[in-house]
Deep mutational scan, measured.
Amino acid sequence: MAEQVALSRTQVCGILREELFQGDAFHQSDTHIFIIMGASGDLAKKKIYPTIWWLFRDGLLPENTFIVGYARSRLTVADIRKQSEPFFKATPEEKLKLEDFFARNSYVAGQYDDAASYQRLNSHMNALHLGSQANRLFYLALPPTVYEAVTKNIHESCMSQIGWNRIIVEKPFGRDLQSSDRLSNHISSLFREDQIYRIDHYLGKEMVQNLMVLRFANRIFGPIWNRDNIACVILTFKEPFGTEGRGGYFDEFGIIRDVMQNHLLQMLCLVAMEKPASTNSDDVRDEKVKVLKCISEVQANNVVLGQYVGNPDGEGEATKGYLDDPTVPRGSTTATFAAVVLYVENERWDGVPFILRCGKALNERKAEVRLQFHDVAGDIFHQQCKRNELVIRVQPNEAVYTKMMTKKPGMFFNPEESELDLTYGNRYKNVKLPDAYERLILDVFCGSQMHFVRSDELREAWRIFTPLLHQIELEKPKPIPYIYGSRGPTEADELMKRVGFQYEGTYKWVNP
């Protein structure tokens, strides 16, 4: 592979701008107003304001973009700056750019259920340069409990009458099928589907988006991507930290609602779906819905739930269990780990287990898709061969690698495990991989909904998990304890083995 010439960040961002501006969906010269509902909250200060700053800094926003914060707290732009700027990672050389960014910011205080507050917000936006005809993007960085009041008031008082209007809704989209349907029906009564952007930030990850290209742009994968060759698929999300004093919020939802029903299920769809007619948003989402419709409700015998306990040999936070978090209700049975087996009941995947695993306070930070292939028929190497695996590593250190057998150097035919490896950090030294939120917010500006969740996708996802969630809430089974920093409950490994996964433990990928 030829040595790549190092590029400056300015040059890299210039390439990104060229890609972005050559499309006809990006209205570079139009006025846009980006409204952050819930501007005083954690999500706004840690993710949304920093993301908008990065896009502005790199010249990736339309030229005439204004940012308006809205929340109940009586704040000023200076207050917003004070709480969000520490997350910007701005350099001293960017000081003038930073001043320009905050000059485009404003803030309006108001209630979430008060019509007069929204009329005041609308008047404020109209007073901005060309504000009355601007395109408006409303980001709901809010708890779902206020979605209905907020969307109703936005629709009645704050819509642009000339430009387009788009609304970005953060997960969780309800707690179960019934609450999700209620919320979807409410929002759909106010906005068209092409105006609604239900954001799952995992769909903005580079390697998640790469799944489609790997599958449908490489001839070698087509013939082997089926039940005849693939023994099982494992989708993993692991965090090495616990709730760390923020367990009160987590306890309301648990690990299945927080990660599995959305992030992991979306990745499953991209692995299992048929080739779409095109890369058009609805063509892709149509195929994802077909996959979900082929999955039956989760069966309790295919589920393992766990909850982390303190590690007596650990240090600091590792010595504390979930129930030691003062914000967690006493005696909570909320799971911090889950392993679930699903089956896609169609011709391509009949009988292939899709194993979804996620948890907190585990032994490493990792998100990946792992396809394990069947054993080689007619073994001539005296059971020395391990199964081939194709691994798409989402985070950290984005990579695609194939675990395969090669001859060990020497005189004899002794096979050993090795890999074919594409590590993004080595291959793409001159490429700026956008943060997931950067990519998705740019998608909203461009009107691309491919990486957002459609209402029928959402409904099918909740259909699969709601009976299990209701059973857990009714019966309150005690989750299996696992030690902070471990791989999780051993019962999860036993479940995976029972459905056909072979864990060798003899080879570990190392970032080159």
Rank of each mutant, 00 (worst) to 15 (best):
F102A: 07
V213M: 12
L211C: 07
R104K: 09
L121T: 00
S106C: 10
T243P: 09
S40Q: 04
E94Y: 07
L121E: 01
T65G: 03
E93V: 09
S184P: 01
V68P: 04
E193T: 03
S160I: 07
L121S: 00
L60Y: 07
L140W: 07
F173Y: 10
T151K: 01
S123A: 15
L214Q: 11
S179I: 04
V169P: 01
L75S: 09
L20S: 07
I80S: 06
K89Y: 09
F88T: 06
L183R: 01
Y147V: 02
M125K: 02
M212K: 04
E170S: 02
Q195N: 08
D58W: 09
I168Q: 00
A71F: 00
Y147K: 04
T236P: 02
I33H: 08
F102E: 04
Y197I: 02
K95P: 03
G245D: 07
V68R: 03
L183E: 01
S40R: 00
S40T: 12
L235F: 11
R219Q: 08
A71K: 00
T145N: 12
Q133S: 14
L190T: 10
Y197N: 05
A231Q: 14
Q111K: 13
C158V: 13
F241V: 05
K171Y: 04
M159Y: 11
P92I: 13
G131N: 14
K171T: 03
L177C: 09
F87H: 14
L96C: 13
A134S: 15
R198F: 05
I234D: 06
I52K: 02
S179E: 09
D42C: 02
C158T: 15
A71R: 00
N185W: 10
A6C: 13
D42H: 01
E93I: 11
Y70I: 08
K95C: 11
A78S: 15
F191L: 10
D100R: 09
L60D: 02
S157P: 01
R17D: 11
P144N: 03
I67P: 02
N105C: 15
K82V: 13
N165D: 08
H201T: 05
K152Y: 13
I187L: 13
Q195F: 04
L211K: 04
L16I: 15
R81A: 10
R104A: 08
Q133M: 14
F101N: 00
I224Y: 05
N153D: 08
T151G: 08
V108L: 08
R9D: 15
G174H: 04
T145R: 06
V208L: 15
E3L: 08
R182K: 13
Q119H: 12
S106H: 14
T151M: 07
M37N: 04
E99D: 15
V233S: 02
G41C: 02
R198S: 00
L183K: 03
R166P: 01
G174W: 01
A109H: 09
R166C: 00
S8N: 15
G38V: 03
S160L: 07
E85A: 12
G245Q: 09
L43K: 01
I36S: 03
I168R: 04
T51R: 06
E19S: 15
C232F: 01
A2E: 11
Y139I: 05
F101R: 01
I154Y: 02
I224G: 07
C232L: 05
G69A: 10
S73Y: 03
N135T: 07
I167K: 00
H186A: 13
E252I: 10
E239W: 04
I162F: 15
F221R: 01
S188A: 15
Q28C: 14
K46M: 04
A217V: 04
M125V: 14
L128R: 10
E94K: 03
T91I: 10
R227E: 05
Q178V: 14
D251I: 01
P143G: 03
F138I: 07
F250N: 01
A231P: 00
F253E: 02
I199L: 03
Y249P: 03
T10K: 15
R192W: 10
S123E: 14
D181K: 07
S84R: 03
P50L: 04
Y202M: 00
E93W: 09
I220Q: 03
F241L: 05
L61D: 00
P92T: 14
P92Q: 11
E63L: 14
I162S: 12
S180E: 05
R246S: 00
L140S: 08
K97S: 09
R198I: 04
E206N: 08
F138M: 04
T91M: 14
Y49D: 02
D181L: 09
E244M: 14
R246M: 02
G222M: 12
A109V: 13
D114W: 10
P172Y: 04
P86T: 09
W53H: 04
K89V: 10
Y70R: 05
R9G: 11
R198V: 05
Q161N: 10
L214P: 02
L177I: 11
D42V: 00
F102D: 03
V213Q: 09
T51C: 09
P240V: 09
S29C: 15
G254A: 05
K238H: 02
L130M: 15
M212Q: 03
C158S: 07
I36W: 03
R219A: 12
A217H: 01
I224S: 10
F191T: 02
R120P: 10
L190P: 01
T236L: 05
F34H: 06
G14Y: 10
Q111C: 08
F250L: 01
D58Q: 09
E193P: 00
R57E: 03
N135Y: 06
M212G: 03
A141C: 10
V208Q: 00
S179M: 05
